[in-house]
């Protein structure tokens, strides 16, 4: 819980500031809770030469503020503990910890079609995972704090049903990974405090060295004026091109309960 105090504090400040602005007319706010499962593939040469299958639950909180459906400001927190499994032996099973924060701001591109809205804008995404094998006997991590672009399309199929699809891509990322030989004093002394590792030295990487392509899809049902329900499918492809490359593909299926206020 101590490790979450800063992210929660920042989120509280943002929510508070947004709720102040939210008194204006035309402003809609919503708060969503998401539960889902991840399933995908993982390979990090820094950790192991083997291919791994990834699976496990994910949880998310998100806040969204729209103004006259023209601007879209969102904050999203995602966390989860997944497993990595190798076909070689069950003994190689490892824990995979996820902690992501996204802040995005999108603007609507003018359209005559009120059923179909296009938004485009930018996002800050802190995408982080920490892999642990047998205590801390084996580990790796990838912390990527990026600025990128995001495009989103929303289609109102009926008064109660809408679908949304978005695509995002980082343009510049600050990527923190283990050192060349996988281990140094900083890692050793902060292995049990992954958040401290977030601030260790990394490298700026652009698209040719770091890619995190996210395709998010949502099917949303309006249950009432205050409540929406949604089914989500997200596809994430992450690649770090280095001497010790990381490649990862995640499918995420989830459901969301969205409170509107």
């Amino acid at each position: 819980m101590k490790q979450l105090k800063w992210p929660l504090f920042i989120l509280s400040i943002l929510l508070f500031s947004q709720s102040m602005y939210g008194q204006k007319e035309g402003v809609k706010k919503e708060f969503g809770i998401t539960v889902g499962i991840n399933s995908g593939y993982f390979k990090d040469i820094n950790f192991s030469p083997l291919n791994y299958r990834q699976s496990g639950p994910v949880f998310g909180l998100n806040y969204l503020r729209t103004k006259d459906n023209k601007t879209h400001f969102g904050i999203e927190l995602t966390a989860g503990i997944n497993s990595l499994n190798s076909k070689v032996t069950e003994r190689f099973k490892s824990d995979y910890y996820i902690g992501n924060l996204r802040v995005e701001y999108l603007k609507r591109i003018s359209t005559e079609d009120k059923k179909l809205n296009w938004h485009i804008g930018g996002q800050f995404l802190s995408s982080n995972h920490f892999v642990v094998y047998e205590g801390l006997n084996g580990f790796t991590f990838n912390f990527a704090h990026s600025l990128g672009i995001k495009g989103m399309a929303t289609c109102q199929l009926s008064p109660n049903i809408s679908i949304r699809s978005s695509l995002s891509l980082p343009l510049l990322a600050y990527v923190i990974r283990p050192p060349y030989n996988g281990f140094d004093k900083t890692t050793a002394e902060n292995g049990e405090k992954p958040l401290k590792l977030l601030t260790r030295e990394g490298d700026f990487k652009s698209l040719n060295k770091y890619m995190l392509l996210e395709w998010k899809n949502q099917f949303r049902y309006k249950a009432s004026d205050r409540l929406d329900l949604a089914f989500n499918y997200n596809l994430t492809f992450q690649k770090v091109n280095e001497d010790t490359p990381l490649t990862q593909l995640q499918n995420q299926f989830s459901i969301s309960t969205i409170f509107k206020f």
């Binding site: 950790f47 070689v88 190689f92 004093k185």
Partner: peptide
């Protein structure tokens, strides 16, 4: 210090000195 644990396709593991 020892390296992080290393893995082989036959299910064996190993470690080595990195400093």
């Amino acid at each position: 210090d020892s390296s992080s644990r290393r893995f082989l396709p036959n299910g064996w593991e190993y470690q080595y000195s990195v400093q």
